[in-house]
Design a protein around this nucleic acid. Structure first.
Lengths: 143, 143
DNA sequence: TTTTCATGTCACTAGATGGTGACATGTGGG
DNA sequence: CCCACATGTCACCATCTAGTGACATGAAAA
């Protein structure tokens, strides 16, 4: 377990591609030999492309590989997905209610366009808060 | 709501980048004007880079934008994340138990290396199943 | 042993992506 | 009105990514 942030990044990046998501769907049903996975995508992709995708999934620890003779078996590892989703959702759960109510506020504001004064004053108080916050240091990562 | 698959893809792709995830973290706390988001990443990125990221989040409907005068306010929309994660996790939930037990089997097999005969016969039965399956038509998407 | 089967590896490529600077436009305050 | 502020847009670029064909290697069957 090297760097949790880097590992999480690998998972998100792996899941960004629809082919890889499809591969995981297949493996969720049952483990497959690499050739079987390849056969499933035969019409869409060449063998090496599929293998590359599998390699990315392995690097992200979403897939576990086991050799048996000349067969390479791929097993789904559902734990990272679950962890990443859980962590992501739970981190936002405490903010969900307020976020949803804000959206509601916005949609209501959108319906009654005449009440432009109200959100304008609200936006000013928000701005003041934002500036005085000590979270002005960027959480961004330099690439 | 054009094409659900394409929309889901936008979400996954949006979440693949760590900067964009950081932006969503910020917006989960409180809505921010674009300039405020930019300021948070000042040390890491130029303004237009941040705006590009925001645009991707908007396209994925993870962020909702509202103009007020010269201010552009960004609101987190937690719904797509939740939906995507829920759908993804629940789709695999029925497979999680079997997948976990398979992994367990593998790790146990790994510990007792002498029992190579057992998994070898098991792999053959799996192979037979895979071939007779009518899921041989690829679920992959041609790019 | 040879041949077939399953997979590995590598080089290459077209397109996508994340980043930048420069110029442009619109809003709001003095 | 002018100027400052906030954001928009565009062209460019280095790097990454998803895909391919070709050659290589190892296991298993004939």
């Amino acid at each position: 377990m090297k760097n949790p942030t880097a590992e999480v990044d690998l998972v998100w990046k792996a899941l960004a591609d629809s082919t890889r998501r499809s591969i995981l769907d297949l493996l969720a049903e049952r483990p497959l030999a690499t050739g079987e996975v390849v056969a499933r995508f035969e019409k869409a992709l060449c063998r090496t492309a599929v293998m590359k995708h599998l390699e990315i999934l392995v690097q992200a620890k979403l897939v576990i590989v086991r050799r048996e003779g000349k067969m390479r078996w791929n097993y789904l590892n559902p734990v990272p997905i679950q962890q990443v989703c859980d962590r992501w959702v739970s981190q936002h759960v405490r903010q969900v209610a307020s976020a949803v109510s804000r959206l509601k506020e916005l949609t209501e504001d959108r319906v009654s366009q005449s009440t432009t004064e109200r959100p304008s004053s609200a936006s000013k108080s928000r701005r003041t808060k934002a500036i005085s916050s000590d979270r002005l240091n960027t959480p961004g990562e330099k690439r």
